[in-house]
């Protein structure tokens, strides 16, 4: 039979799919939002936005934040979308330097939290949300072991907490890199020494957050044996939100408030966008009270806008981190290659 028949079948199928997949749109009315694969919002917000503005919002994802930014850098000047959301403070410097973004000052930026208001990379980016990468604790483990949970980065290197911590590889994982940066911020030039002590204390390194949390962590579902994991300050509320009914009273995990690294996510209009006006409308919308209020429960990040009320699970189980660690974006861009190499040498990998 047929190569010809197969060919015909193939073409027919392809045609059928493209017919049902295509969205009939007038080009001027469509705006594309480029983001990472973790992006999620309530569908009703998008429906409202489209109804209100008459724009068609198409969300395109391109891998994780790093891959998405890499793609944006490569396409700088002739972008695959109009507006980008999800570049963070560890990646932004390179993207800005490559000319990915066009300047735009949203009027909504005045409503941002004071410490974020001027964090715009020279008017190219607008903060949308923030969150902290912190060590998470399996409370039940420490209660039944009769051991006080660790409370500082120093504790993690002390013998009582031997063989209890799992971290992610900073070379392959965003929270892993954040945790490395927090140790650099805390210990300065002495950070390799801290990692030597962690290694001597039996730290495990996993390839990704999923692997560490779902696999190695005692509370991740995968039956791991590590009661301490590098995760997010918002993981405990997520544990409640993503539990089956009836929801547990309180999460089984808590956050170690010391040594947290602050991540900020930005949005920016892409240079060369075919629909710059639409892009600006999307950016304004991302800062609107409705979207900002939706962020905690959809993406488990905290709103950049000042005065947005947080859901109950957040106020109860995700205490604000008082003094998060942070390194300036330019320093991060300049330092990361050497830090990763040094970290690899220290950890023998």
């Amino acid at each position: 039979m047929g190569v010809k028949a197969l060919l015909a079948a193939g073409i027919a199928t392809a045609a059928a799919l493209s017919a049902c997949g295509g969205t009939a749109e007038s080009a001027s009315g469509t705006v594309r939002l480029l983001t990472h694969e973790s992006f999620v919002l309530s569908q009703s917000l998008i429906d409202d936005f489209q109804a209100r503005t008459g724009l068609v919002l198409e969300v395109v994802t391109a891998g994780d934040a790093g891959s998405m930014v890499a793609g944006a850098i490569l396409a700088a000047g002739a972008p695959t979308a109009d507006v980008l959301f999800g570049v963070d403070n560890t990646l932004r410097s390179r993207a800005v330097g490559a000319g990915v973004f066009a300047p735009y000052a949203s009027s909504a930026a005045d409503a941002l939290r004071p410490e974020l208001r001027d964090d715009t990379a020279g008017g190219l980016l607008t903060p949308v949300d923030f969150g902290d990468v912190c060590v998470n604790i399996d409370d039940g483990f420490f209660a039944s072991a009769g051991l006080a949970p660790p409370s500082t980065l120093e504790d993690l290197a002390s013998p009582e907490y031997r063989d209890l911590l799992v971290v992610e590889d900073p070379g392959t994982s965003s929270p892993g890199l954040a945790f490395l940066l927090s140790t650099v911020a805390r210990y300065g030039d002495q950070w390799p020494d801290y990692w030597r002590r962690l290694a001597a204390n039996g730290v495990t390194v996993a390839g990704s957050w999923t692997d560490a949390y779902m696999g190695d962590f005692t509370k991740g579902g995968g039956g791991g044996d590590r009661p301490l994991v590098v995760s997010y300050a918002t993981s405990p509320p997520a544990e409640i939100v993503y539990a089956s009914d009836p929801k547990p009273e309180r999460p089984s995990t808590s956050v170690m408030p010391d040594g947290c690294y602050r991540q900020v996510e930005y949005a920016g209009v892409l240079a060369g966008a075919s629909n710059p006006a639409g892009a600006q409308a999307v950016l304004d919308w991302l800062l609107s009270p409705e979207v900002q209020a939706d962020l905690p429960l959809s993406m488990f990040v905290l709103p950049a806008r000042d005065g947005v009320a947080l859901p109950d699970v957040f106020t109860r189980f995700a205490p604000a981190i008082a003094n998060p660690l942070q390194i300036a974006a330019d320093e991060v861009a300049a330092g990361v290659p050497d830090w990763l190499a040094e970290w690899g040498a220290v950890m023998g990998r």
Binding site: G220, S231, A238, V241, Y242, A243, S244
Partner: peptide, 16 residues
């Protein structure tokens, strides 16, 4: 993609 997205967040439900 859905599976990976689910595994990318905490909670018993996500894993299940």
């Amino acid at each position: 993609l859905q599976i990976v997205r689910l595994l990318g967040r905490p909670g018993e439900e996500s894993y299940g």
